[in-house]
Amino acid sequence: MDRIFEILGELRKAGREVFRVESPVPQPYASVDPGHLRVELAAGAAAHLVVLHTEEGTSALDIDLSEGAQLELTELFLGGTFCETAVRQGARSRCRMTTVLLAGANVVYRIELEGADAENNLGGAFLLGGREHGVVKLHTSHRVSDCRSDSTVKGVAGGEAVGEFSGLVYVARDAQRTDARQQSRNVLLSETARIETMPQLEIYADDVKCSHGATVGQMDSDAILYMRQRGLSESQARRLQIEGFVGDIVRRCGVEPLGEALLELAAEKLEKL
């Protein structure tokens, strides 16, 4: 955790209330417990933004990407924050989002693809234990033609934790040639943990490529056995398997040492699940 603060401490501060980026050269910015923050990327601007949520309170991110803007957004939840993130994307904009819940936060994403050829890519992971209750809601709207969205949210729940995922992909009548994918994949670590997943599609256009899927499974006991046969303890084997499951999401954040630091932090949490 200290490592995360250290890394974020070296980044520029994203400021309070309104954070505006004009530069086309992406620089990494950080914001800790932003409260209500408006993020504006001017046409053609680019940025990396890392947002850390540690508090119990509410938070709202209002993100606006003008034409051709590119944002890499990483959000990390370490407290039971209630957070709503709204992303509006103009034509040809790109938004790559990573969201990692290491606590029972309640997180809502509303993604509006409003300009042609906009692209949104979201990777989410929640790791819940004890009596934590985490929620990820995702609402992706394709308002116009030729946009792409791809979301994968992976959930892990142990102890008596409860995880919820609900995802909706909405494709408006005129949003032809939409390419939308949504995946929810989950693993339960105990008999008493629960994960509910509800992926939905609402499609009004006829020329679209949409797919969605959801799975809830257990740990692979054959893999645990295999690893133990090579000398790993049961807890190491379990940890390695979960790390393998969520690792691609947790590690993918674009700011260099942060991905590994996040994985480390996630691994510490896994140890206790």
Partner: peptide, 14 residues
Amino acid sequence: VEIPGVTMANFMKL
């Protein structure tokens, strides 16, 4: 057994 996401190097080091 296949173990997705776990590299051989990581596994063998442990």
